[in-house]
Amino acid sequence: MKLLSRVDELILLAIWRLGSEAYGMAIWEEIKAATGVKWLMGAIYGPLGRLHRQGLVDTVKGDPTPERGGRAKVYYRLTPVGLKELKKIQGIHAVMWDGVRKIEA
């Protein structure tokens, strides 16, 4: 499988950190707060849908609420595959960054 893209990685990390509270808007806010990068909220659903189709996340449907126009929240969690991919990226980062430090030293 191809390596995760930076956006996918950020989304997966955000879902992991949010735990049981990871739904669309929360994920977007988490990433926005952590990175400080401005991006439109609508931009998150494309990647979310894709990650779901790829089997990296799965979803749990919440209850509909009136402030959402009667629409249900959908909570995301990492699947074991998703977690594995995330860890793989982490490992790669560690190794690569480690190498850089050695060169610098």
């Binding site: 739904y23 669309g24 808007m25 977007w28 909220m41 609508g42 659903y45 494309g46 979310l48 849908g49 779901h52 189709r53 509909p64 609420t65 402030e67 959402r68 126009g69 629409r71 249900a72 929240k73 959908v74």
Partner: peptide, 23 residues
Amino acid sequence: ILGWLLDSSVREQALGDLEERYR
């Protein structure tokens, strides 16, 4: 327009999220 453009798999939640945020 959003409802029309969004993929059916995320349409419901996305519209919900956006409305919540909008409010």
